[in-house]
Amino acid sequence: MKRHLLSAADLDRDDALLVLDTAEEMRQLADRPIKKLPALRGRTVVNLFFEDSTRTRISFEAAAKRLSADVINFSAKGSSVSKGESLKDTALTLEAMGADGVVIRHSGSGAPHRLANSGWIRGCVINAGDGTHEHPTQALLDAFTMRRHLGELDGRRVTIVGDVLHSRVARSNVLLLATLGAQVTLVAPPTLLPVGVETWPCETSYELDGPLPKSDAVMMLRVQQERMNAAFFPTQREYSRRYGLDARRMGTLPGHAIVMHPGPMNRGMEISATVADSARSVIVEQVANGVSVRMAVLYLLLGGSEPALSAIGEPAVATASAPESVPA
């Protein structure tokens, strides 16, 4: 049976560590003269991007190509989607082309889940960000980056700051980091914390200066103007003052702590240029690690006769179909 990577919660601890260990091996490839492995020769990976993306699409494309897969890039702009083609018809087209793996980014939360469980396609589905829901490979690359700097993540403290409400990165990170044993604190103005955040496996705070001195890693989230249809904070200047990471705040971090950002950054808004370019910033490294982690995910899902990741896909199906006892 085909499996998918739809949510960071699909990965149990063993699976997550397997991805991170595999990524560690994949990372060596970057130092070699021939950056190519034959593992996915003859497999076709489709990058299905309904939403703009630079680093994620390029990262998945590089990862698939380094594993010798054939890559088909599809972006909604300039495709039949702009003529009104539905997700289903697009999926059926891809199936007819023989896609072994589909990497999907969509503005609708749950679109990858629909694609994976509809029966439209037989390939593996990898969620590359759906709406404000999840972005599991970003969480994996963040965990990978933290592990390289901090060692195993058990008991480590990670502070995630900013627009949690609109952030699929924050949700996936909270779930994965909890699986890996880290303690996560979300920091945001009350308006930018989602309803039900108290059920997440993390702590929350409305102010930034308290958690910083105890943090091993600080992750700044982008303020997602394009998803904001209301006034979530009075002014950008006030947000920046209260929740932005500047040189003074960075000074209160422990000596070993790292500063992360999933990109793209709004310099001067959630993170100052001084911090973004400082020695503590691992933001550029996150991008490089993204390729290794995505290679690991693609290899483990598509490299053999069946995926090596045991739990992937199934639990999400179970929860989604739970209300079936309710008559329609």
């Binding site: 595999t22 994949m26 492995l37 290899y299 483990l300 053999g304 006769s305 090596a308």
Partner: peptide
């Protein structure tokens, strides 16, 4: 030198974990 990804039977079995390569 781990040769897992170069094996000719890679497709015949579930994806296997990689072993360390150290050149």
């Amino acid at each position: 030198l781990d040769v897992t990804m170069y094996r000719d039977d890679l497709r015949l079995r579930p994806a296997r974990p990689l072993e360390p390569t150290d050149i």
